[in-house]
Simulated scan of single mutants.
Amino acid sequence: MKWRTVMEVLIKGAGDLATGIGWRLVRAGYTVWMTDLEIPTAVRRSVSFSRAVYEGEAEVEGIRAKFAKNFEDGRRIASEGLIPVFVDGEAKILKSLRPEVLVDAIMAKKNIGTKIDDAALVIGVGPGFTAGADCHRVIETKRGHYLGRVIDSGSAIPNTGVPGNIGGYTVERIIRAAGDGRFVPLVDIGDTVEAGQTVAVSGSLPVKARISGIVRGILQEGVYVTKGMKAGDIDARCERNHCFTISDKARAIGGGVLEAVCGWEHGI
């Protein structure tokens, strides 16, 4: 096994769940690199390192990430103790970095290119991966009893298409695009809204809140959306601090990844 002074982990994806993973790994002493799309679509962007792509930098609970222009820039950023974030939807940086660990946290509900020989340890997050086939470990992402579980053989629970229950609501809490086109939010993360209120415009059509609560996440202005696409999240519990801190789900999944990495590191 090839070791460096500090083990490096590449995470595909930099949305809120991937950020929870990266945050826990950095806190445990690992060096983390991340990739995302040119136009990220994380709705919980206040707690997503993907924000570094269009803002240059992002900080989540004391851990900082910075946009990396190229591999050399990423090396410099990592040497400063920050997380480099690349615009690299296909994770081509993998060939240059050659990390010990690869984590696929794109959350596409299917495997769109990760292979078990991409790194010494390959971890698939959520449905679409099979431990022992296209990765070494799978992390359960469905809310409930098994959330964050490390799966050594087999797959995670299949995607149900129904969002997890938060504050007594599932599908109702999701803000979805009303039409195809440019997305323009009319509220900010942390704002309180009422059921029926217009919270955004997509494709010139009003996007209305289905429940009253606090805006926990919403897409940034300018993203091209399609009708029905997830564009935001309303939390009926109205805890403002929840909008700007890592969720229980992301922490649990991050803990599962950390368990898998530590176990592999110790030969378990």
Rank of each mutant, 00 (worst) to 15 (best):
G144L: 12
K66V: 06
R27F: 05
K249W: 04
G168I: 00
R4S: 15
N159C: 13
G190N: 07
F49Y: 13
A250K: 06
M7N: 15
H145R: 15
D88L: 03
Y224G: 10
G154R: 15
G20P: 09
G168H: 00
N165R: 10
G161I: 00
K115W: 04
I175N: 02
F71W: 13
K92C: 13
V225L: 05
V138M: 06
P158T: 05
N111V: 02
L205W: 15
K230C: 05
L97A: 06
I123K: 09
T245C: 03
R149N: 13
I21A: 04
D233T: 05
I77T: 09
E61S: 13
N70M: 02
V103K: 03
E72S: 15
E265D: 11
P163M: 00
D16P: 01
A209S: 15
L37K: 10
A177K: 07
A52C: 01
G254E: 12
A91I: 01
G20W: 07
G154M: 13
T160R: 00
G144T: 10
G256I: 01
F86G: 04
A131L: 10
I11M: 01
T141L: 09
P127G: 04
F71H: 13
R137I: 14
P99Y: 01
M1R: 06
W264L: 03
V87E: 14
R24I: 11
P185F: 00
E8Y: 06
P99A: 01
Y224F: 09
S96G: 03
C262T: 14
G13P: 01
N159L: 13
A195C: 09
G181T: 06
S155F: 00
I123G: 07
F129C: 03
R240I: 13
K208M: 13
K66C: 09
I174C: 14
A156L: 01
F67T: 08
D117G: 00
R237Q: 10
K249C: 04
D248Y: 11
V103A: 09
G20N: 07
T141W: 07
V171R: 15
V187W: 03
T170V: 12
A14C: 05
W33H: 09
G29Y: 02
D118I: 00
T226M: 07
K12F: 07
S48G: 02
G254T: 06
S46I: 04
R149D: 13
L25Q: 12
V103H: 03
G267P: 10
Y54A: 00
E57T: 11
D134T: 07
V187R: 12
G190I: 06
D191C: 05
D233C: 04
E100D: 05
V47T: 12
